[in-house]
Computed example of a mutant assay.
Amino acid sequence: MSLNVESTPLTAVLAPPPLRLIDDTGHAVAESESGGFRLPAVDTLLGLYRQMVIARRFDVQVTALTRQGRLATYPSALGQEACEIAAVAALSPQDWLFPTYRDSIALLTRGVEPKDILAAFRGDWHSGYDYQQHRIAPQATPLATQALHAVGLATAAKLKRDDTVALTLLGDGATSEGDAHEAFNFAAVWQAPVVFVVQNNQFAISVPLDKQMACRTIADKAIGYGMPGYYVDGNDVAAMYAVISAAMHRARSGGGPTLIEGLTYRIEAHTNSDDPTRYRKTADVDLWRSRDPIERLEKYLVAQGALSTEARADIAAVAEQLAATTRECMTDQAVVDPLELFEHVYSTPRTALAEQRAFLAAELDGDASASAALSGTNTEESTR
């Protein structure tokens, strides 16, 4: 007897509409559709709008600098501003942010200077900012590794009985990694005060979401780990801020982790080395451009009488000044010391590393005889 197995994949099942508080036209949704979340105060939304406008101008400027060859690479977050700005705005000063390589505007919003954000992308230094000062971990290039780091810090905070919460930003592709599974599972089992914010921009470089997973939404996975999951309109900064703020409060109060999926779209290419026309349609990009998170909130604030023409001009002026500062800092030639390669490798200096450092120092000084002697010593060491 054969089983009658349905051939329709689970991905063919339509996902539910994402939670939103302001719709595409800039109108507040009915209370019955808000999922129990309240629309943030107008002053809060105005602050979020300001931060998104400034962040986008920075992002556009840096993309231009990359195309001019003044940066090695830069992953743009154009179109994803609502997810990142809402996440940072929900943090308290003592909280920690664990970002990915695409989250530069999150760093900017948390107070990191443009020159320090771009140091790694220009190849000046591993990371240009002070982690402890900003309470921001290094931007992670390997997918999902920062999720484990966030859970580790959050668990330590719980053991120390302080009120620090860790928030980590991930992409949809990162949730296909084993590190993400381990982070979700460990956080839920140990009730770590951590919030996972997944920016579902629908592509892991060129791989669409339906080729990554068969479930309706990423948020659906939360139930398998035993934690709350929310599927949110990632282009609605009001909804993202409300949901993330609630999750931060829950974590701080001992309620454990939360998984939040923000449905959004990556307007620009993956990086400057990518050609997105090979795997997605221009019509889809145009559709998501029409769902712009900044324009949506702007319509709402104007209708509320909270955003005047003068206020918009003032915000734009601040954004332009930041763009000018960013351009200026990229004209300064970085002073790079090759010997810094050997710094901060081990807490206790190793003899072999010291020998390598001395060999390079001699090479840089042009001391051929010293280099040859040191080379012979190194060869001797390697044959023992």
Rank of each mutant, 00 (worst) to 15 (best):
G178P: 08
E33M: 14
V5N: 06
A137C: 01
Y131K: 09
S206D: 14
L91I: 01
E31I: 09
H126F: 14
R280V: 02
V5C: 01
N4C: 04
G123I: 06
E310H: 14
L364N: 06
T145D: 13
L65V: 08
N200W: 04
M213E: 07
R110I: 00
Y300D: 05
A147I: 06
R20M: 11
A238H: 02
V336K: 09
G256D: 08
E113M: 11
M240G: 02
I218A: 03
G366F: 02
G111R: 04
A238P: 12
S7V: 14
M330S: 08
S290D: 11
D124R: 08
A370L: 10
T164P: 01
Q304V: 09
G255V: 02
T168N: 02
C215K: 06
H149L: 14
M240Q: 00
F342Q: 02
P142E: 02
A166L: 03
T66R: 12
A354T: 12
S273K: 09
A30V: 02
E340H: 14
A77F: 00
Q133H: 13
P338R: 05
K158M: 01
P193C: 06
F58C: 04
A55N: 07
I315H: 09
I218H: 01
L322M: 05
R384T: 13
R252K: 12
A15D: 04
R38T: 15
D365Q: 07
K160Q: 15
S176E: 05
L167P: 00
E363A: 07
Y300S: 05
A334H: 12
L97S: 00
T325E: 15
A89W: 00
A283M: 10
A119H: 06
L3P: 03
L159V: 13
Q191L: 03
W190G: 03
Q68R: 15
G262H: 00
D332K: 15
D367W: 03
T164F: 06
S176C: 09
L364Q: 12
C329Q: 12
L339N: 10
R384Q: 08
A361W: 01
E355F: 11
Y131W: 08
A323I: 03
A64E: 15
A64D: 10
E363W: 08
E177P: 11
R350I: 11
L71Q: 08
Q304Y: 07
V165M: 12
G79R: 01
R357S: 10
E355P: 05
Q139E: 15
H149Q: 15
R280I: 09
P142D: 06
R20V: 05
H149Y: 15
H126V: 11
S2I: 08
H134Y: 05
L91Q: 00
T379Y: 11
E343H: 07
S34F: 10
A140N: 11
T168L: 04
N235Q: 15
A119G: 15
M227R: 15
P75F: 05
A188H: 04
S76F: 07
T331C: 10
L14V: 10
D59H: 09
V13K: 06
